[in-house]
Design a protein around this nucleic acid. Structure first.
Length: 1064
RNA sequence: GCACCCGUAGCUCAGCUGGUUAGAGCACGCGCCUGAUAAGCGCGAGGUAAGUGGUUCGAAUCCACUCGGGUGCACCA
């Protein structure tokens, strides 16, 4: 033996997690990740934006999924020759962080934070936000998500904040950043308003009272307006009622109940719904318009009306409907958008009796100091005491809650800063059409509709840990100015120390001279901070510290080619990115958006900590290997559908795909080691010099490359994964290797063997490359096994399909061969004759004459071996007549439109035709039938002829092809079967004895005479197939240290195999 | 309440520009093969295609409604 072999048979069992750990070490030692991320060398850039996570929570299994979607695409384009920068980012500001710190400190409301001190509080936030940074980085590394963590963008860095300021200043310049008084969703616990996309995150079912209240009609004793509300706590703030001008209203008299003759006014359409079975008498009909201006008496008169504003009357409101309630709506202009809108229009008074924590003012009777929602029941009782309550129920409805602290929100009149997104809505809608969404209907549907219903973005937060809003307001003249960047601030305040932190509370202390000519006043910063969704939405700009200026070009990597996040980001990150990019550049932030859906548990339940059904990503990765996790998550179904995470299924992926590939590799290595095969040392065999099977596999490999490439290019990762898995299972492992196995067995290196090695090596190599984006670890391991010391697959290129190797005809022919063989196995199984028993002859009939010719010649040997028969015979007409009948069926696609309702009759008539008539059709003859007396002619294309096997001949058919065996067993065949039985037992014995495949043996066989006789006659074959050098038959099995005996049964008779390894 | 997605074998999913006999994998049962060996292959059983109605010669596929699941929207007063 000369040099040591290039390939070595693996001596250990397959263990994917272990393989992955080795690859991690290799990547780390060789700096592979860094090289892949940094590769430029004149490549075009493929731009990816990373949505920043907040690292104050642990990453879960759904993050593994989300990050796989990002990673696969980035790896693919890297292999396609692009430079794909992947700058990591951290989302660091905002309510989620503050809430965590509040929990740490055991405090819950704003005044407590102020007492603790904004400075120390924010210092804690800055630390908290990176609490799990290490774990995020570790998980990214372990799962193979390559992301550049060396210079991440961090939203709380001065540089980032400075960039945000410049962008806000541009909104301000254009008049799109304004302070407004509007009804705002307000979290009483956090003490801040929320934006619509935050509200959208937090709907939960709650039970609320549903009460009908009497509002006495002034000037009409005994009459009341009937009013419905689900928020009794807003009744003390009532100033008016609203009716719809165009609705019909009625005055009804109640018969004899408690009210004894009372009269109630409500919308006519709701009478039945409100009174149900109770009989009421309609006294008067009137229009809504006629009620406008009527006076009413509010139920609670605790709050005085001061100054201006009309009150205690009926006004008109377009929003009033007769769907529910009474058609008369109670108006509290401080607590509802419609109420407020109408209130402004009608000049109504505004009563605002609650504080920022959602508590009634202390001076209010009965409920003073109570949290408003808690006051509901007390207020309802009071209504009852006052005789104002008509009815009370409860009803359950979805109500918005604070997305972080879960407190029910209040809609409350409150000043806030707005980005006037409604003014750029048309641009946003138009630009959305430029985005390629995966799936497309998110863009037109969910996201498109969201844009159509756009409302201004309430962008300020009355909080502490966030980008300070960069608007200063003059205490004297109220004029506003914005600070455009940190540099700008330094111009304005030259004394600012180095390292000045732009956050609160430091920034609050900065006063600026008023810029208005002649004012001379001092401007103070408006106290709010900015919605943290603005931070992340601005990342295409702020990640580069880009400073916005009028007319300035965007960063050169804008827009991105690709982003991917979860479905929940539709109204989150995807939206805020879109607002800011559209405003600044007129373009969307990314050309393509791939949306991932939820990862549910194995029972399709949402994972949540409270249910206790969360899946620990580390445990899954350790158990199955992350490539199996990644692969399964991608292959299971399209990313935008919800998926169940089933650990058992992940394990199966690991075994089936990676285990099979491992076996393929192991097979290759076993023989490559023995033969010292080295693809470098020989010229690659010409394709034309290789066997048909080799050319077939090579063609299929190129087809795979083409199809996988196309699937990746259209972002169909699921298809790519399934194509690869199907190829490995069906083509590579279960056909090529199985059929080519014995070509690797002979001694010495023949041309055919070299061709087989080369073909298999090439196939494995290309599989490694095409699967690399999906299974980065295994692919790189396989690549390393195939080319020891070579470069990482991730620094290599995605293979280009070699079109010249494609062989469409051969690919189709082999499909037919596979089908014939499957039928043949089914036929043998049905006949009860196992594959070891050779048979004399198999009769075949393929789908058409062209394939018949090939089955009988080029593929005959292959089929004969696979089905263990001596001869393959393409059945001629007379043989076929014995084996099958023919049936004629309509070609529905052609005849449906032609015959219409007569198709059914035609079908029946055709089915009655004889085999002879059908055979004529097969020969291409036209067919004339009488349908209901009228002749109808069918061409051979308009009907289909199908085969049916005749019973009793062991025929198997799929309607087009046919396989039948001659099951006659001659003594020769039986003897040959015996030899195969013996070979199998000897080889099983070899394995049980722990021999290596190339070990030679001495062999002794003991058993029934007929079996031994057959074996003796076939000793050459046994010797070849079991590497037995000396074979002895009959007598007592030898004994001794080296000899080992194995008892078997053949046809219910004992066979004793005794063997020993020949040393040296 | 409104909108969107989904409902196919015990489980996970294909198929869905309508074509009559609805597929695959897993799991299960039986058998086979094995010089890749705690793998592999074949066969079988398993389906009122959620339900109802419609369009059509023909519907898992198109339409309507109902039920169930998911998601989103929504101030529901």
């Amino acid at each position: 033996m000369s040099a040591s072999p290039r390939f070595v048979k693996p001596t250990h069992d397959f263990n994917l997690p272990k393989v992955e750990r080795e690859i991690l070490e290799r990547w780390s030692a060789a700096g592979v990740e860094r090289q892949a991320l940094d590769r430029r060398d004149g490549r075009p850039t493929y731009v990816f934006f990373e949505g920043p996570p907040t690292a104050n929570g642990r990453p879960g299994i759904h993050h593994v999924f989300a990050r796989t979607l990002k990673d696969v695409v980035c790896r693919y384009w890297t292999m396609k020759g692009y430079h794909v920068p992947r700058k990591a980012g951290w989302d660091t500001h905002g309510l989620p962080v503050e809430i965590e710190v509040q929990k740490e400190l055991g405090i819950s409301i704003k005044p407590e934070i102020e007492a603790f001190g904004i400075g120390p509080f924010n210092d804690r936030c800055r630390v908290s936000v990176f609490k799990y940074k290490g774990e995020w980085e570790k998980l990214s590394k372990r799962m193979g998500y390559w992301l550049d963590y060396d210079e991440p963008y961090v939203t709380c860095d001065n540089r980032y904040v400075s960039s945000l300021w410049s962008i806000l200043a541009r909104f301000f310049d254009e008049g799109l950043l304004e302070r407004g008084h509007r009804i705002l969703p307000w979290c009483p616990k956090c003490g801040t308003g929320l934006s619509s996309h935050e509200v959208a995150q937090g709907y939960q079912d709650v039970q609320d009272p549903s009460v009908f209240v009497r509002f006495p009609r002034v000037g009409h004793p005994g009459q009341s307006f009937l009013v419905w509300t689900t928020t009794p706590w807003t009744l003390p703030a009532n100033v008016a009622l609203a009716v719809h001008r165009d609705l019909d209203y009625v005055r009804v008299r109640r018969a004899a109940n408690d009210g004894a003759g009372e009269e109630l006014l409500l919308a006519e359409a709701l009478v039945a719904k409100v009174f149900g079975k109770e009989t009421v008498e309609i006294v008067e009909r009137m229009s809504g318009a006629s009620l406008v201006g009527e006076r009413c008496e509010r139920p609670f008169d605790w709050l005085p009306f001061e100054g201006e504003g009309r009150h205690d009357l009926l006004v008109a409101g377009d929003f009033v409907s007769a769907e529910e309630g009474s058609g008369i709506v109670h108006m509290a202009p401080a607590f509802g958008e419609d109420d407020h809108f109408v209130g402004v229009k009608e000049g109504l008074a505004i009563l605002n009796p609650i504080d920022a924590q959602g508590r009634f003012a202390a001076g209010i009777p009965l409920v003073g100091g109570q949290f408003v929602r808690d006051a509901n029941s007390e207020l309802v009782r009071e209504l009852e005491r006052r005789g104002k309550l008509f009815r009370r129920d409860n009803f359950t409805h979805a109500y918005p809650h604070c997305w972080r602290c879960k407190t029910p929100l209040l809609y409350w009149l409150r000043p806030s800063w707005y980005l006037r997104t409604t003014r750029i809505k048309e641009r946003m809608v138009a630009q959305n059409r430029e985005i390629q969404w995966f799936p497309a209907d998110i863009g037109t549907g969910r996201f498109g509709e969201w844009l159509e219903n756009n409302v201004d973005w309430a962008v300020s937060r009355e909080r502490f840990w966030g980008t300070p809003l960069n608007v200063w307001s003059c205490a004297t003249c109220r004029s506003l100015q914005v600070v455009r960047s940190e540099a700008h601030l330094r111009q304005l305040v030259p004394t600012l120390p180095d390292g000045f932190d732009l956050h609160r509370p430091h920034i609050d202390a900065i006063e600026l001279p008023c810029t208005k000519a002649g004012c001379g006043g001092n401007a103070r910063r408006t106290p709010e901070v900015v919605d943290c969704w603005f931070d992340s939405g601005a990342m295409p700009f702020a990640q580069h510290g880009w400073i916005a200026e009028p007319g300035k070009a965007p960063p050169q990597d804008h827009p991105a080619d690709y982003i991917s996040e979860g479905l929940d980001q539709t109204r989150g990150w995807f939206y805020t990115l879109h607002v800011i990019s559209t405003f600044l550049t007129g373009k969307p932030a990314s050309k393509r958006i791939l949306v991932g859906n939820l990862v549910l548990d194995a029972k399709k339940q949402k994972m949540s900590k409270s249910r206790g059904n969360t899946v620990d990503p580390w445990q899954e990765i350790d158990a199955h290997g992350v490539d199996a996790v990644r692969w399964h998550l991608i292959a299971q179904s399209h990313p935008w559908l919800p998926r169940a995470y089933d650990p058992a299924a992940v394990g199966a992926t690991g075994r089936e795909l990676f285990g099979t590939l491992w076996n393929c590799w192991s097979f290759f290595a076993t023989y490559a080691e023995l033969d010292q095969f080295d693809p470098r040392s020989q010229a690659e065999p010409q394709m034309m010099a290789r066997s048909e099977l080799d050319r077939w596999l090579a063609a299929e490999v190129e087809r795979l490359v083409e199809e996988v490439d196309a699937a990746f290019a259209r972002y169909d990762l699921t298809k790519a994964a399934n194509l690869i898995a199907a190829f490995v299972d069906r083509k590579l492992s279960n056909w090529y290797i199985r059929r080519a196995r014995d070509r690797f067995w002979g001694r010495g290196m023949t041309a055919d063997k070299l061709a087989a090695y080369t073909t298999l090596w090439e196939a494995l190599d290309r599989v490694a490359r095409v699967m690399a984006p999906l299974a980065p670890f295994f692919a790189d391991a396989l690549r390393g096994w195939l080319e020891p010391g070579g470069t990482s697959v991730h620094l290599d290129s995605f293979p280009s399909p070699r079109a010249e190797r494609r062989a469409p005809e051969l690919e189709r022919d082999m499909e037919a061969v596979l089908d014939v063989v499957a039928l043949g196995r089914r036929a043998r199984s049905a006949a009860g004759i196992n594959l070891r028993q050779p048979l004399g002859c198999v009769y075949l009939k393929g789908a058409d004459a062209a394939i018949d010719g090939k089955l009988g010649s080029r593929f005959a040997e292959l089929i004969a071996e696979e089905l263990n028969v001596e001869r393959v015979v393409v059945a001629d007409e007379s043989r076929l007549d014995q084996l099958r009948t023919l049936k004629v069926k309509p070609n529905f696609k052609l005849l449906g439109p032609k015959l219409g309702p007569k198709l059914g009759a035609a079908k029946q008539a055709l089915e009655k035709l004889t085999t002879e008539q059908a055979a004529a059709v097969l020969r291409g003859e036209a067919l004339t039938l009488y349908l209901g007396g009228a002749p109808a002619t069918f061409t051979s294309a308009e009907v289909e002829v199908v085969l049916e096997g005749k019973p009793g001949f062991g025929v198997e058919t799929d309607g087009r092809m046919l396989v039948a065996f001659d099951t006659t067993l001659t003594p020769t065949l039986i003897a040959a079967g015996h030899v195969r039985e013996v070979v199998k037992r000897v080889n099983n014995s070899r394995r049980e004895a722990g021999l290596r495949v190339a070990d030679r043996i001495d062999l002794h066989l003991a058993g029934p005479a007929a079996l031994l006789a057959a074996a003796e006659a076939g000793r050459a074959r046994i010797g070849d197939d079991t590497l037995a050098v000396v074979i002895a038959f009959g007598g007592e099995p030898p004994t001794g240290d080296d000899w080992r005996s194995f008892p078997w049964e053949v046809d219910a008779e004992p066979l004793i195999v005794t063997l020993r390894r020949i040393r040296g």
